[in-house]
Amino acid sequence: PQVPQCKALYAYDAQDTDELSFNANDIIDIIKEDPSGWWTGRLRGKQGLFPNNYVTKI
């Protein structure tokens, strides 16, 4: 099955070790969508939390 993905609308710099940094237009694999607004994703071999208001699902 296809892994859900999202595209970064803005760059995000991780504020903690469990967060994921990314650049605008990066494509992130979505591991888990949480109602809190912090999703778990994977990018370039690293997994971490990121704010879903920085991305749009594709």
Rank of each mutant, 00 (worst) to 15 (best):
P1T: 15
P1V: 15
Q2S: 08
Q2P: 13
Q5C: 07
Q5S: 12
K7E: 07
K7Y: 12
K7V: 13
K7A: 10
K7W: 07
K7D: 00
L9T: 04
A11E: 13
A11I: 03
Y12H: 07
D13F: 06
A14F: 02
Q15H: 07
D16C: 13
D16M: 11
D16L: 07
D16V: 09
T17E: 07
T17Y: 08
T17W: 11
T17R: 11
D18T: 11
D18P: 15
D18I: 09
E19S: 10
E19W: 05
E19A: 07
E19M: 13
L20N: 02
L20Q: 00
L20R: 01
L20I: 13
S21R: 03
S21A: 07
S21L: 00
S21M: 02
F22I: 05
F22H: 02
N23Q: 14
N23T: 14
N23W: 05
A24K: 13
A24L: 09
A24G: 08
A24I: 13
A24S: 11
N25Q: 13
D26Q: 07
D26C: 00
D26H: 00
I27Q: 06
I28T: 05
I28S: 06
D29N: 07
D29V: 06
I30T: 02
I30F: 02
I30C: 05
I31F: 04
K32F: 05
E33A: 08
E33F: 05
D34E: 15
D34S: 11
D34P: 10
D34Y: 07
D34L: 06
D34N: 14
P35Y: 07
P35S: 14
P35R: 11
P35K: 14
S36T: 12
G37S: 03
G37T: 05
G37K: 02
G37A: 03
G37P: 04
W39F: 11
W39S: 10
W39V: 05
T40C: 10
T40K: 09
G41P: 02
G41V: 01
R42T: 11
R42A: 14
R42W: 13
R42K: 15
R44C: 10
R44D: 14
G45L: 05
G45F: 06
G45E: 13
K46I: 05
Q47W: 11
G48A: 09
L49C: 14
L49F: 12
L49E: 08
L49S: 14
F50I: 15
F50R: 00
F50E: 01
P51M: 04
P51W: 10
P51S: 07
P51T: 00
N52V: 12
N52A: 15
N53M: 15
N53H: 14
Y54C: 12
Y54G: 03
Y54D: 00
V55D: 02
V55R: 00
T56V: 12
K57N: 10
K57E: 07
